[in-house]
């Protein structure tokens, strides 16, 4: 390796900083996952309907989120709003942009799931006297989540990967904290290989716990 000497000790000195960054990453991943889900559920229903202003709004949202780079979306919320003198902290900007992205992708995932639910389920629920929102909450969505579970969790992991863009707007998430820590010693490779390992562990941990949660929820 051209006489390059690896220094790992500098990484361990900054390890607490990186752990704090990892915690920010986990927070944003989790919150954006929840916010994305909450927004995507009504949007998927609107997309399914195929007409009206709600359909147009959610279709535009979906197409914008899916056809522009995540880094563009982040810049709009950080620098774009900043140009109007609406200065939001980088944490909020990353959270909003990752939620925006998640919601767009999840809408399409949910829509695919909704079209797999037989029409009669809705009619049956309504004929039992449930209102439309009640039938969605108690009958349709629980079945839908079972169908789309894997794609849904994969999107959650994508959200985590997107949150790494926080580095570009100065957020001290795992990538940002690593970037900050390595800027003292310029041991870029050592620092980022450790960060990559941490991302891998977080991704696997999230996947595993989601799988457990799924098993518990749909025990049958």
């Amino acid at each position: 390796m051209n006489g390059y000497h690896f220094y790992w000790s500098t990484v361990w000195q900054s390890f607490p900083l990186m752990l704090a960054g990892a915690w920010v990453t986990i927070q944003i991943t989790f919150l954006a996952f929840i916010i994305g889900t909450v927004i995507a559920m009504p949007m998927a229903v609107a997309r399914q309907k195929g007409e009206g202003w709600a359909y147009r709004v959610s279709t535009s949202w979906v197409e914008l989120a899916r056809n522009t780079p995540a880094v563009f979306q982040l810049f709009v919320f950080y620098f774009g709003l900043g140009a109007f003198h609406i200065n939001i902290p980088s944490y909020a900007a990353v959270l909003i942009s990752v939620s925006f992205n998640n919601a767009g992708y999840m809408t399409e995932i949910f829509r695919g799931g909704l079209s797999a639910i037989p029409r009669q389920q809705m009619s049956a629920a309504r004929s039992l006297g449930m209102t439309s929102p009640q039938s969605f909450m108690h009958v349709i969505f629980p079945q839908m989540f079972k169908v789309i579970f894997l794609a849904y969790i994969t999107q959650g992991i994508w959200g985590m990967l997107n949150s790494s863009l926080g580095m570009l707007v100065g957020l001290q998430d795992l990538t940002g904290a690593t970037q900050y820590a390595q800027s003292v010693s310029f041991r870029t490779f050592e620092f980022f290989i450790v960060a990559a390992g941490m991302y891998y562990l977080i991704a696997k941990g999230l996947q595993f716990s989601a799988l457990i949660a799924f098993r518990l929820m749909y025990r049958s």
Binding site: I157, L161, T175, A196, Y200
Partner: peptide, 22 residues
């Protein structure tokens, strides 16, 4: 691993690793 590490980190690693490797 390639699927669960952010692209930004993969880019930085490719950059620094290939530079180290000469």
């Amino acid at each position: 691993i390639l699927r669960s590490v952010p692209m930004i980190i993969q880019l930085i690693l490719a950059n620094s690793f290939l530079s180290l490797a000469g």
